[in-house]
Structure formats: structure tokens, C-alpha cells
């Protein structure tokens, strides 16, 4: 795929997610705390979950850009890694809107087991998305194939930098659909 096109598409998705978050932030706080059913995540918990998971990629990308990005020149073609591609595609909903692949949340990404969720999770989500966008701009000067980043799949699995952008942003997109369902069921 074309690297610049990928960077543009991912930045656009992030901008849309930021815009939507800012609108959701204005909803009554009670609505953001409501659960669709007992034991299910409410809206702020979904945001906190995204922060915990995407934070791994943001930190990984941030440090790899500092360390190694200068060593590579821009490559206009990005070829996804097979694992990165597999997991990114697994995040995509089917055409009918169903989620194709229900997954169990890893403990470390489960908000109630961590510091807990609040409307500040939404503010942090916006900050983190801005940082992703800033890194995407820097990606126009490096090789997203050769720069590699740790993943949430374990210490042995490293994603190509391109996939380390694609996967968390697709994962967030999936959770935005969940947020719309949570809000629709409670508001």
C-alpha cells in the first residue's frame, strides 16, 4: 500500500475519533457512567481500555522514532507484516456491522483492574490521539517497514511501525462502535 495514503487515512480516522470524543465529553456525566448491562463496560471504561492498550503502541512508537527513525529514508511503499495485518483485519467489523472476532480482554488492559476510569480517560484519549498524529507526520520521513515496535501480543512479537499505527487505530475504531452501542442502549 502507498505509505503517504496510509498516513493520510490513519490521520483522518484519528481526527474523526477526536471530534467524536469531544462531542461525547459534552454528554451528561451520568450517561457516560451507565452500563448497558451489569458487569459490562460503560463509556469511560471503554476509553480507559483504549488508552491502556494504545498506550503500549504510542510509547513503543515514540521511543523507536527517537532511537531509530533517522537511520531509514522514506519508503513510499508499505507492506504490512503478516501478523500485524492479521490482527488489524481481525479488528474490522463485518459488512453487516457484526464484530467478527470477540476477544477476551487481557488483564493488563481491563480498566477496573487498573487505576479505574473517569472522564479524564476521554481527555487523555484526545491527548494520545494528538500524539499519534504527530508521530504519523514524522513517519513521512522514515521507513514504516524497517522500523519495528513492540506489540501487545507479547515481548516476542514486534510489529512493523506501519502496523503499530494500523492495529491500535483499528482497535479504537472497533471500540468506537461499541461506545455508540453503549450510548444508544442507555441514553
Amino acid at each position: 500500500m502507498d505509505s503517504l495514503q496510509l498516513i493520510a487515512d490513519l490521520s483522518k480516522t484519528l481526527r474523526q475519533q477526536i471530534d467524536r470524543t469531544n462531542i461525547i465529553r459534552q454528554l451528561p456525566a451520568e450517561a457516560l457512567l451507565q452500563r448497558p448491562a451489569p458487569g459490562k463496560w460503560n463509556t469511560v471504561e471503554v476509553f480507559e481500555h483504549m488508552n491502556l492498550s494504545s498506550g503500549v503502541y504510542l510509547n513503543g512508537l515514540g521511543s523507536e522514532f527517537e532511537k531509530g527513525a533517522g537511520a531509514f529514508s522514506f519508503n513510499s511503499e508499505f507492506k504490512p507484516g503478516w501478523l500485524g495485518n492479521y490482527f488489524t483485519n481481525a479488528m474490522r467489523p463485518r459488512a453487516n456491522g457484526d464484530i467478527s472476532w470477540r476477544m477476551k480482554t487481557m488483564r493488563m488492559f481491563d480498566p477496573p483492574r487498573n487505576q479505574g476510569a473517569s472522564t479524564q480517560s476521554l481527555d487523555r484519549f484526545v491527548q494520545m490521539s494528538e500524539q499519534f498524529i504527530a508521530l504519523l507526520n514524522r513517519a513521512k520521513r522514515t521507513d514504516l517497514n524497517r522500523l519495528r515496535v513492540i506489540s501487545t501480543l507479547g515481548p516476542l512479537v514486534r510489529f512493523k511501525a506501519g502496523d503499530a499505527f494500523r492495529f491500535p487505530i483499528a482497535h479504537q475504531e472497533r471500540h468506537f462502535q461499541q461506545i455508540e452501542r453503549v450510548l444508544a442502549s442507555t441514553v
Binding site: P28, A29, E30, L32, L33, N42, V44, E45, P111, P112, Q115, G116, A117, S118, T119, Q120
Partner: peptide, 11 residues
């Protein structure tokens, strides 16, 4: 501004 905290979250 309004802030929401889930039970167990730090204010």
C-alpha cells in the same frame, strides 16, 4: 465542568 468517576477510580 462535569466529571464522571467509575467506582474505584481516583479523583
Amino acid at each position: 465542568q462535569e466529571y464522571a468517576f467509575v467506582r474505584g477510580a481516583h479523583v
